[in-house]
Design a protein around this nucleic acid. Structure first.
Length: 589
RNA sequence: GGGGGUGUAGUUCAGUUCGGUUAGAACGCCGGCCUGUCACGCCGGAGGUCGCGAGUUCGAGUCUCGUCGCUCCCGCCA
C-alpha cells in the first residue's frame, strides 16, 4: 500500500479512480451501518466511507477506529450523492469508498482535541507539543515559516549572497546580552559562549573578501523572556561589502517585498517610508513606532514653559519636555478609565497624566485654570483640539515622557480600534544616536553595538559630546515591532579604537577581547555593513500571531524550560567531573 | 529582582461575592441503538488530590500564609 494522494487533492474529476490515502482519523461518524471517517494529513481532509454493503469485513474493522489512529485506506473515488456535497471542504465533492483498511497505529485519546475550536492552556500545549503541532493553526504557521525561509534564500541567492555557516561554540564578548556558556572538557575551567549573533564572524567574512554573506541562523541570549523574545531565536543575518546605507536598505526592502509577495501574495509598495530617530521620538515617542494609525504626539513645552501650572513649567526648566496626545472624540471616558490609563503609564515611570476634556463651552480639566487665554489658544491650535476630544499631557524628562506617552498611544490605538486588521505598516528608523549614557555604570554604552560607524559629519563630537553623535545604524519597524536592524560598520582600526575608548574600554581590554577584529581591520578590510532580521518576529506578524512561540515548533516557557523534553535538567556527577565543574550548595535544586 | 492575571472532570469553564447537603455544564471518553453523516443523532454510563503544603474553623474549592506551574508587563534584552 503506497500513498497516492494528499487529503486535499481529490475532486469530482478523480471520480472512478482507485486511490490510497494515509493519515490520521480526524473524526469518525458511526451510523451503525455506514461509517464516515474524516481522514487528515498535513494538506487537508478527505471523507472516507466504510459501507457494509460494499465490504462487510473492512466495515467491521472500521468500528475500532478512534481519533488520531494512523491509517491507510485504499478505495474508489466516488462523487457524493445528490445534496451531500460539503462546500466547506476542499474535497467535499467526493468521498472515498474504502475497500481496504490498514491500521498502522492506534492512539491514546489525546489530552486535547486536535482542532481549532478550543483554546487550550499553553502549558498543556507545550507539554504535548507534538500534538499541538497537529492542529491547523500551528501547521499553517510552521508551513508559512518554511515558505518565508525558502523565499529569503531564493531572493538572497539570486542577489549574489553566499550562505556561510559560523560557529556556535565561540568566544564570550563583553557588552550586550548575557551569554549562554558551554564548559570546555578539554580545557578545564574554560568556556565557550553561544553566539548572541554572528556579528564578528560576518564582518571577518567581509575582510576575507566574500562580499555578500547571509545565513538564517540561531542566536542565543540568556535574558528574560517575553512574548516576542525566546532564549534561542532565529535571525536572517546579512552583510555586504563596498556598500552604503542606501544599498543595504533597498536590498532589504526588496527582500521583504519578495517574501510578502511569495508567501502572502501581498504587494508591499517600495520604497518603504523612513523616519529619523529624532522624528520617530518626536512624533511617536518610541524608536519603533506603530505607524498603522495616526494620533501623533505634539510637544508643547514652548507654550507651557512660563505657564502658571508649576508642574509643567518646572519640568521644562529642568530640561524636561511636555507632550500632548489627542484622543479624538474620547470625551466620554470615565474617571475610572482615565485612572486606569494613569496606572498604565505609571509602569513606564510616568508620575502622572494630566488631561483636558474639550467641551463646546470650554475645557473641563483639573489644570485648565492654570493657563491664560493666550496659552489655551496656542495649545488648542497645536494639539488640534475640537469639541469632543480628550487630551492627555505628559511632563517629564524626555526619555520618560516619550516612552510613557508613546506606549499610551499604542495602548489607545488598540483600545480605540484605530488599527485595521491585516495591515502591514513598515518604516525605517535611521540616524540613531551612537551612545547612551548609563547612569548606573557611569559610562557610555553603544546603542546599537560597538562596531557601528558614526556619521562622518559627527566625528568631531566623538570625544567632546558623545551623546550627540549620530550613527549609521538603521532599524526596520513593522507594526510597532523592531523586525530588523543593522548598520554600516567601522572598517578603520583607528576609528574603532576611538569608539572603544568612549565606551570606557582601555587598550588592554579591547585588545584582549577584540584583538582579532582590530588585526582584521588592519589587514585590508573593505567598507562594509549589514542587517539582521528577527525571523521569528517577522513570521509572527505574517501569521497574525501575537507571540513568537506560535511560530516556533518547540519553544520555551517564560522560565526558559522546554515542557516537552524537560530541559533544562540536572547533570550527572560524572558529566560535571569531566567538565571540572561543581554545583554551589546554594543553588536551588 | 518586581508588579498584574491565572490554576476546579481528559479539555474549556461555572461555582469563590457572604465558608455549610452528594462540586455542576458543555465538549471529549466508554457502552448500546442507528445505512448518508460531515460539530451526525438518540439512550445510558464512567470520570474530581478543586495546582501543592500549612493554618484559621465544628466545617475550606471558597478565608489567611507559604510554595509551584503557566502567562502579560517593568527591569534586563550591544
Amino acid at each position: 500500500m503506497r500513498k497516492t494522494h494528499h487529503c486535499n487533492q481529490l475532486g469530482a474529476e478523480d471520480a472512478g479512480s482507485e486511490v490510497v490515502l494515509m493519515g490520521w482519523v480526524q473524526r469518525r461518524r458511526d451510523h451503525g451501518g455506514v461509517i464516515f471517517v474524516d481522514l487528515r494529513d498535513r494538506e487537508g481532509l478527505t471523507q472516507v466511507v466504510f459501507n457494509p454493503d460494499n465490504d462487510a469485513q473492512v466495515h467491521a474493522k472500521a468500528h475500532a477506529l478512534r481519533s488520531e489512529y494512523v491509517i491507510g485506506v485504499r478505495g474508489r473515488v466516488t462523487p457524493r450523492p445528490e445534496g451531500m456535497v460539503n462546500p466547506n471542504l476542499a474535497t467535499g465533492a467526493i468521498e472515498v469508498m474504502v475497500s481496504d483498511l490498514r491500521i498502522f497505529n492506534p492512539a491514546e485519546t489525546p489530552p486535547f482535541m486536535i482542532e481549532e475550536t478550543v483554546e487550550v492552556n499553553e502549558s498543556l500545549r507545550l507539554k504535548h507539543r507534538h500534538l499541538d503541532l497537529r492542529r491547523p493553526r500551528l501547521q499553517k504557521n510552521i508551513i508559512l515559516r518554511h515558505k518565508a525561509g525558502a523565499a529569503v534564500r531564493e531572493y538572497l541567492n539570486g542577489n549574489g549572497f553566499l550562505d556561510i555557516e559560523t560557529p556556535f561554540l565561540t568566544r564570550s564578548t563583553p557588552e550586550g546580552a548575557r551569554d549562554y556558556l558551554v564548559p570546555s572538557r578539554v580545557n578545564p575551567g574554560q568556556f565557550y559562549a553561544l553566539p548572541q549573533s554572528p556579528q564578528l564572524f560576518k564582518q571577518l567574512l567581509m575582510v576575507s573578501g566574500f562580499e555578500r554573506y547571509y545565513q538564517i541562523v540561531r542566536c542565543f541570549r540568556d535574558e528574560d523572556l517575553r512574548a516576542d523574545r525566546q532564549p534561542e531565536f532565529t535571525q536572517i543575518d546579512m552583510e555586504m561589502s563596498f556598500i552604503g546605507e542606501e544599498d543595504i536598505m533597498s536590498l532589504s526592502e526588496g527582500l521583504i517585498a519578495y517574501v510578502f509577495q511569495e508567501v502572502l501574495g501581498q504587494a508591499i509598495p517600495l520604497p518603504l517610508p523612513r523616519l529619523t530617530y529624532t522624528e520617530a521620538m518626536d512624533r511617536y515617542g518610541l524608536d519603533k513606532p506603530d505607524t498603522r494609525f495616526g494620533m501623533e504626539l505634539k510637544e508643547v513645552s514652548d507654550i507651557v514653559k512660563d505657564s502658571g501650572f508649576k508642574v509643567f513649567a518646572d519640568v521644562v526648566k529642568k530640561g524636561g519636555i511636555v507632550k500632548a496626545l489627542n484622543a479624538k472624540g474620547c470625551i466620554d471616558f470615565s474617571r475610572k478609565e482615565i485612572d486606569d490609563l494613569t496606572q498604565y503609564v505609571a509602569v513606564y515611570k510616568a508620575k502622572g497624566l494630566a488631561w483636558i476634556k474639550v467641551r463646546e463651552d470650554g475645557w473641563q480639566s483639573p489644570i485648565a485654570k492654570f493657563f491664560t487665554d493666550d496659552e489655551k489658544a496656542r495649545l488648542a491650535e497645536r494639539i488640534d483640539m475640537a469639541p469632543g476630544d480628550l487630551i492627555f499631557f505628559m511632563a517629564d524628562q524626555p526619555k520618560i515622557a516619550n516612552e510613557a506617552l508613546g506606549q499610551l498611544r499604542n495602548h489607545l490605538g488598540e483600545k480605540l480600534k484605530l488599527i485595521a486588521p491585516g495591515t502591514f505598516s513598515f518604516t525605517w528608523v535611521t540616524h540613531f544616536p551612537m551612545f547612551e549614557w548609563d547612569d548606573t555604570e557611569k559610562r557610555h554604552e553603544a546603542l546599537h553595538h560597538p562596531f557601528t560607524a558614526p556619521l562622518e559629519a559627527d566625528y568631531d563630537l566623538l570625544e567632546t559630546q558623545p551623546t550627540a553623535v549620530r550613527s549609521r545604524a538603521y532599524d526596520l519597524v513593522l507594526n510597532g515591532f523592531e523586525i530588523g536592524g543593522g548598520s554600516i560598520r567601522i572598517h578603520d582600526m583607528a576609528l574603532q579604537s576611538r569608539v572603544f575608548k568612549i565606551l570606557g574600554m582601555n587598550k588592554e581590554t579591547y585588545e584582549g577581547k577584540f584583538g582579532f577584529l582590530l588585526d582584521a581591520l588592519q589587514s585590508g578590510a573593505p567598507p562594509h555593513g549589514g542587517l539582521a532580521f528577527g525571523f521569528d518576529r517577522l513570521v509572527m506578524l505574517m501569521c497574525g500571531e501575537s507571540s513568537i512561540r506560535d511560530v516556533i515548533a518547540f519553544p520555551k516557557t517564560q522560565k526558559a524550560a522546554c515542557l516537552l523534553t524537560g530541559a533544562p535538567s540536572e547533570a550527572a556527577t560524572v558529566q560535571l567531573d569531566e567538565l571540572s565543574l561543581r554545583i554551589k550548595a546554594t543553588a536551588k535544586v
